[in-house]
């Protein structure tokens, strides 16, 4: 009957330890959930205040619920043009940067060549330079070559492609590293040339990574203020519009646009996760 004696002893020692561990484990969970709450709070405030009916000019204190700002989101002068410019720049810069970045990633992962490490460095440097320095140096280029570059839509586009490319390279590279080269070799053995192999084998396999990279690029572009503001001239993107509005008072329509961008981005992010999950499952099923 040694077990009978042993059980209560273990329980006595274990009770204190276990309750202490219980407290500790819950403390960690509680802390984690508090931090999540802290992260979500401003988002909730942004969405909530898009439904606010402010009495004065300032949209700081909750006054009452209204859908007016969602229905008349473009009733504020300049906001529609700013949103359209943001989307145009974002789409154009994302397409160009994704193409350029994917090519750089392919070269770095697939090939050994002279200048590979300096290429890596050149890609890494813009990401580790403060935005204000990136924007300021580009502005001095444009100011000193004003015969060629006038500040406006195209200088914003140039700036966005420049700072997005590095992020595209990093995202696509991460995917290419875990990529089975045998599939391409098989295609070549079966008589496909490099271009056909790329179109029929490589591209479909890296497409999810390119899409993820493009989504990231678009998110970075539509969100950028510092570099854009320095190189925009008189052209307004949505963040530049918000900056101008913040000096006087921010209309609730700004919250409407920001909430809409947030909801679309969340939907796209979830969609991308699902797509990657499904294509991962499909390739698993194939092998």
């Amino acid at each position: 009957m040694t077990t009978v004696a042993a059980i209560p002893r273990r329980a006595r020692v274990g009770l204190a330890a276990r309750s202490w561990r219980f407290v500790k484990r819950n403390a960690l969970t509680a802390y984690a959930l508090l931090v999540v709450g802290y992260l979500m709070l401003p988002i909730a405030v942004v969405i909530l205040f898009s439904f606010n009916a402010p009495k004065g000019r300032f949209n700081y204190v909750w006054q009452g619920f209204t859908l007016d700002h969602w229905i008349n989101w473009d009733s504020v002068l300049g906001i529609r043009e700013a949103v359209i410019t943001s989307i145009q720049v974002g789409l154009l810069a994302t397409v160009v940067a994704t193409a350029l970045g994917t090519m750089i990633a392919l070269a770095i992962v697939r090939h050994r060549f002279v200048g590979r490490s300096s290429t890596n460095l050149l890609v890494f440097l813009p990401m580790s330079t403060p935005e204000i320095v990136l924007g300021a140096s580009l502005l001095t280029l444009f100011l000193n070559t004003s015969a060629i570059f006038q500040l406006g839509f195209w200088t914003i586009f140039i700036a966005h492609v420049m700072f997005i490319v590095s992020f595209i390279v990093v995202t696509v590279k991460a995917r290419l590293i875990g990529f089975d080269r045998h599939l391409e070799e098989a295609a070549m053995d079966l008589g496909a040339n490099e271009v056909t192999t790329f179109r029929k084998v490589t591209l479909p396999l890296i497409a999810p990574a390119m899409l993820a990279a493009a989504l990231l690029g678009f998110a970075l572009s539509i969100d950028d203020f510092v570099i854009t503001y320095l190189n925009a001239g008189g052209t307004q993107t949505f963040p530049v519009f918000v900056w101008g509005a913040a000096r006087v008072s921010v209309p609730p329509q700004v919250n409407v646009v920001a909430s809409a961008i947030f909801l679309v981005a969340i939907a796209l992010a979830l969609g991308n996760v699902l797509w990657q999950y499904r294509s991962a499952k499909r390739t698993q099923g194939a092998t």
Binding site: L39, M40, P42, I43, V46, A219, I222, D223, D224, F225, F238, P239, V242, W243, A246, V254, N255, V257, A258, I261, F262, A265, I266, A269
Partner: peptide
């Protein structure tokens, strides 16, 4: 998620 809300906003 905070990245999906415009920085300034």
């Amino acid at each position: 998620a905070p990245f999906f809300v415009t920085y300034l906003v």
